[in-house]
């Protein structure tokens, strides 16, 4: 009798020590082609290198063949590597596109070519957004993300209207392109401020690299809230 029950326990033991299951994550997002460093103006005859990033349907950056076009080659030209050359004064539209399987994506911006010698003052880009809970935990506030002069770092400023629960263990902040996953995301680190204004310095990051703030509970493995980074 005892042997029979011991066998049952050993069987349960073996079952438990052998298996780790799977959780299926709904992480689909629309693929996106992003021009990372568009400019609004360029003087004749200067040049400028554009960069792009293609994010697949789970928000992970992938290599892609980008096709560049200028709406008016008499004003500005662009080669297959995204290298701009200002030719004459005027306005043109620069477009980048990719064809991945049956998905065609195009991104464009307008550029004004100014006369030779024009001094272009480039202001640091500032983006902003609203943090909102996606769970039952308190999380609210607004934020700005801005470029820093003479630096490749970004400054993430969470405003004084920010509030987060202190009950939730292991709350982390990420920058991500997929609000449903931390896969491929940049970990800003554990959240240590739960009320009021505070800042984070994000080193060596382009302001167009990420599209969401993501608050993530590490031990529970779930998102707690997000904030879309908007222009």
């Amino acid at each position: 009798m005892i042997k029979k029950y011991m066998l049952l326990f050993v069987s349960l033991f073996l079952m438990q020590t052998s298996c780790i299951g799977e959780d299926i994550i709904n992480d689909f997002i629309e693929p996106e082609l992003r021009i990372l460093n568009p400019i609004s103006s360029l003087p004749v005859p200067e040049t400028y290198q554009l960069n792009t990033a293609y994010f697949n349907n789970i928000g992970i950056e992938e290599e892609a063949i980008v096709t560049w076009t200028s709406s008016n080659a008499n004003i500005i030209t662009i080669n297959s590597s995204g290298f701009l050359t200002a030719i004459s004064e005027g306005t043109a539209i620069i477009s980048a596109s990719v064809q991945e399987n049956d998905v065609f994506l195009e991104e464009s911006f307008t550029i004004t070519i100014t006369e030779d010698g024009t001094v272009i003052i480039i202001e640091p880009i500032v983006k902003a957004g609203t943090i909102a809970t996606t769970s039952s935990y308190l999380l609210t506030g607004t934020f700005t993300l801005q470029e820093q002069e003479n630096s490749d770092d970004l400054l993430l400023s969470v405003n004084s209207d920010y509030q987060a629960t202190t009950s939730l263990p292991g709350l982390y902040l990420y920058l991500t392109n997929n609000p449903n996953s931390i896969s491929g995301a940049y970990s800003v680190g554990p959240v240590s401020v739960f009320n009021g204004a505070h800042t984070y310095t994000i080193p060596d990051t382009n302001i167009n690299d990420y599209t969401y703030l993501l608050y993530w509970c590490q031990p529970f493995g779930v998102k707690v809230g997000t904030g879309e980074i908007l222009d």
């Binding site: 438990q16 020590t17 780790i20 799977e22 959780d23 349907n57 789970i58 996953s181 896969s183």
Partner: peptide
């Protein structure tokens, strides 16, 4: 004897393991 495990997180979109499970 106590054992704690967490499942693998698998992408529904790609089937890839996003986060390895642990025990």
């Amino acid at each position: 004897f106590s054992r704690t495990t967490q499942n693998d997180a698998v992408s529904r979109t790609t089937g890839q393991v996003l986060t390895e499970g642990e025990a």
